[in-house]
Design a protein around this nucleic acid. Structure first.
Lengths: 227, 227
DNA sequence: TCTGGCTGTTACCGACTTGTTACCGACCCA
DNA sequence: TGGGTCGGTAACAAGTCGGTAACAGCCAGA
């Protein structure tokens, strides 16, 4: 789920973005009203967190413009605490209104409440690199030349995902171990075995791998054909 | 539109009721938690304004009970201003949380905002996806090739509904548990059992399910034929 | 008061996942 | 040359997962 944070105070924009990323959301930012409208048009988010005092087009203007084309949930975050401002914002189409300063925990809870009511679907989950696709929501991988996907286990999916997110790059053994098993969670033997298992599932011929390249003494790379 | 005002302070109950009637809403009142649940069961309102400090069953208890049977919007009105209380209330299923004392104008604006969102995201009473219909008001499901509907229990309906609202989409186990039982309310064993029971009711052959697909380690999807 | 339905809990089963161990060949270094 | 390390391959055992079924307690309705 993607959140657009519209805030001209850069420090606050960073804090809010950090809070949201830690809560598991994807974040885009805009620092003035027109940039916000443009960002939403180019890549609609699932939720907008909207300051009112913005350069170039104020928050209510953004709200009006966005509302004319979308019913995306909007939460206003503003220093304006007066009744009139709150009522005005809600009437302009906001779903909620929080007065600064606000607590991160409450922000996240209110986001969740709004999204619960909306029933928004999950973020995009398909990774596709040079003929190999990973559908993260289903835990399946599929080569273009195969008619049916192959099911991956939880750990296999984590490993493949970690590599596909950085195609062509060698990822050190320790980094992969950390990504898959977390801190203090795995070792080289386990990674070696997992690589073997993953190759058995996705490679045309696991003894002559083309997708997962071994870099001896260093790590592995997702090295699709033609890259 | 009918609002149920649940407030043990009679004077405040009267003030809020007056405000709402003047804003054009029909109002019912209850002054303790059990009376509220009963009133809602006997004559469901379109919105509940809910105090937390209530005799006989506190506001969170009311919220939990109501949420177990209904998606009705709930706005909590409470003197409890702390983060924990707000977060707790929102996580329990409330759509909004206002701290007393609050302004009547803001209350009405927030009611409108919540109802506006409900109006947008409300799903029809009859859900029909690829030959399977769910009549939510009757709690019945029916395949096109069956002459009579089958009656679903409350939990079965919730589960089927949650999936049919997002056909083709894998819904993680935890999300289904949360939807059906609410926060802290269920576990994997209960979901597994519920899936089994629901399949026994709607599938042609529950051992070879075609509507409810299992995605091992992840969740389930409503995966009707041809999708 | 009794009964049937609902729901949570427990039990069992087979399939699958994952950590661990074992073995092999290739490679490097003293 | 021998020992050690590394990466690939395979097997085994313990634990988890999902399906199936039964039981018990609770509650609403007759």
């Amino acid at each position: 789920m993607k959140v657009l944070v519209v805030e001209d105070d850069l420090a606050l924009s960073d804090v809010v973005s950090f809070t949201l990323r830690r809560a598991g959301y994807e974040v885009a930012t805009a620092h003035d009203g027109l940039a916000a409208v443009e960002a939403f048009e180019q890549s609609p988010s699932d939720l907008i967190l909207l300051d009112l005092n913005l350069p170039r087009l104020d928050g209510l203007g953004v709200c009006r413009k966005v509302r004319s084309v979308s019913d995306v949930p909007i939460i206003i975050l503003s220093v304006r605490a007066g009744d009139e401002a709150v009522v005005r914002g809600l009437e302009m189409g906001a779903d909620d209104y929080m007065v600064k300063p606000f607590s991160p925990a409450q922000l996240v809870a209110r986001i969740r409440a709004v999204m619960r009511r909306v029933g928004v679907s999950a973020a995009p989950t398909l990774l596709s690199v040079a003929g190999l696709s990973l559908d993260r929501s289903r835990g399946e991988a599929q080569r273009d030349d195969e008619s049916a996907p192959v099911r991956l286990t939880g750990l296999e999916q984590k490993l493949l995902e970690a590599m596909m997110l950085h195609p062509g790059q060698v990822i050190p053994t320790d980094a992969l171990i950390n990504t898959v098993w977390g801190p203090e969670g795995g070792d080289r033997t386990m990674l070696k075995q997992l690589v073997y298992r993953l190759r058995s599932k996705i490679e045309v011929d696991a003894s002559k791998p083309i997708y997962i390249e071994t870099v001896p003494g260093i790590g592995y790379a997702f090295n699709p054909p033609n890259v």
